[in-house]
Design a binder for these strands. Structure first.
Length: 116
DNA sequence: CCTATGACTGGTC
DNA sequence: TGACCAGCCATAG
């Protein structure tokens, strides 16, 4: 097969450089801890919470980026519009030692990163 | 170019 | 403790 680098099936996002910096920041979140879209955004120049959310959604399956450690500012796994990766995210976090209360929330004071 | 949509947030009531 | 909302901005059609 001839090399076709123009239209790969898993095409990276248009704003790749920004996304890459977001991913680098997400990789800093330690196992067993969580951060939020807004928190990550504050640490990456040019990013906003929404953009961080898009960056997470754009990750290909099998990525090594610990996307599961990014939750919303209320400590909940953000609801997906499509599919139910929501349940998968919670299971992975629980396996990392993060606990959820009856309402499905994480105590940010306990697991939030970085520490206040 | 314009509209709709969404893994968001912070403020107000 | 919610519920609601304006502001937010990349992407898709």
């Amino acid at each position: 097969m001839p090399s076709r680098r123009k239209t790969p099936t898993n095409r990276p996002p248009a704003s790749d450089p920004l996304y890459r910096r977001i991913y680098a920041e997400v990789r800093r979140i330690p196992r067993g801890r969580v951060s939020s879209y807004g928190r990550v955004a504050k640490r990456v120049q040019g990013a906003t919470a929404r953009i961080v959310g898009y960056a997470m959604a754009a990750l290909p399956p099998g990525s090594t980026v610990p996307w599961q450690r990014v939750v919303n500012h209320r400590g909940e796994v953000s609801p997906r519009k499509h599919g139910n990766g929501q349940m998968r995210q919670r299971l992975i976090l629980e396996r990392e030692g993060v606990t959820f209360d009856l309402r499905g929330r994480i105590d940010i004071r306990l697991y939030g990163w970085p520490r206040p």
